[in-house]
Write a protein that binds this DNA or RNA. Structure first.
Lengths: 171, 171
DNA sequence: TTGCATCCCATGAATTCCCATATATACAGA
DNA sequence: TCTGTATATATGGGAATTCATGGGATGCAA
């Protein structure tokens, strides 16, 4: 498995829609772009589809290639395949990190998610998410409500039920 | 099972957020990083998520790979998976031990745990914890309250119910 | 030719790297 | 067993880089 996105941070969005990508995320994007070599700027894919989703989802080139392959394995013409194509292919776009480590969020996308002058980048393993700050805060609190239950102080409890797989250390 | 973290000690945190990692812990981090060889500096992952938790939890690369694998075995999109992702992926970050055996705790993390000029490193087997000194003291006392009960003088009593497995010395 | 998007440059702040030192620990030889 | 020497550890300071962000120039298209 490729490098994982980890961590979160808030960044300014300027009038042109430019946002800095957290440096740690850029390293993952570079590693996940087969075309990339030192001096070049990695490509990534942003998915804004999915009704009700409150975030834009960022994929490395490799991670998206995996999604594409899965879609291509679905029965041609099936409704599920059409839905997947709609979300991942129609409602997405490809961007390139620029010289200064930023990407541009077009006006209509910013509008859709209510993003104005700031955006939160939150890691989620193979992908990362771009949120409107308050929306992320709300989401974050909802995720943490679980801890209010005195039984659940240790998040490892969440993993307890999962299969005791052998650790894979990746490549 | 890999080498275990053991022991505790207090270290200075300087204005840049740098803290020395106890040398004994470094040995475990080295052993737990598949990329590591003599001369290199091991990577580790710090988890600061988990509402109400009063410490930062440090994982070796291997230990975190196990957590990641468990998360990936959870049903996609399930609430528990989301929570696990939030705590272990979003509210965590990766750092590398530097030339002088230190790591850097960013300002916002230090603020969250009230860590200013000192921090306590406390081992916990496969992971270790970083505490604000007074918080650790408090925790430590709470753990020891148990002994106040005259019946419970021998901590081995705690292990009584555990399965009598054959000791594995690991590798 | 006006609007939008891309490219290029500039700058302060934060972060990393490198070097220095004092103390503690291990080791070797007498 | 004692003692000097080498080694490892914990910590501090400054230089060099990288990062995040803002501003303007350039180019293309409607």
């Amino acid at each position: 498995m490729a490098q994982r996105f980890r961590g979160k941070s808030t960044h300014k969005v300027d009038a042109k829609g430019r946002v800095s990508i957290p440096a740690a995320f850029r390293r993952v994007l570079e590693a996940g772009d087969p075309e990339w070599t030192t001096g070049l700027f990695p490509t990534l894919i942003l998915v804004y589809g999915g009704k009700g989703r409150k975030f834009i989802e960022g994929y490395t080139v490799e991670a998206m290639a995996d999604v594409d392959a899965r879609i291509e394995n679905m029965p041609l013409g099936s409704i599920d395949r059409r839905r997947a194509e709609h979300t991942f292919l129609t409602e997405s776009f490809q961007v390139q990190v620029d010289l200064t480590g930023r990407l541009v969020l077009p006006q209509n996308i910013r509008d859709k998610f209510g993003i104005s002058d700031e955006a939160v980048f939150a890691a989620a393993g193979t992908t990362f998410q771009i949120w409107q700050p308050e929306a992320h805060q709300e989401h974050s609190e909802k995720m943490d409500e679980w801890y209010d239950d005195a039984e659940n102080v240790d998040p490892l409890v969440l993993l307890g039920a999962a299969a005791p797989v052998t650790a894979s250390t990746g490549d």
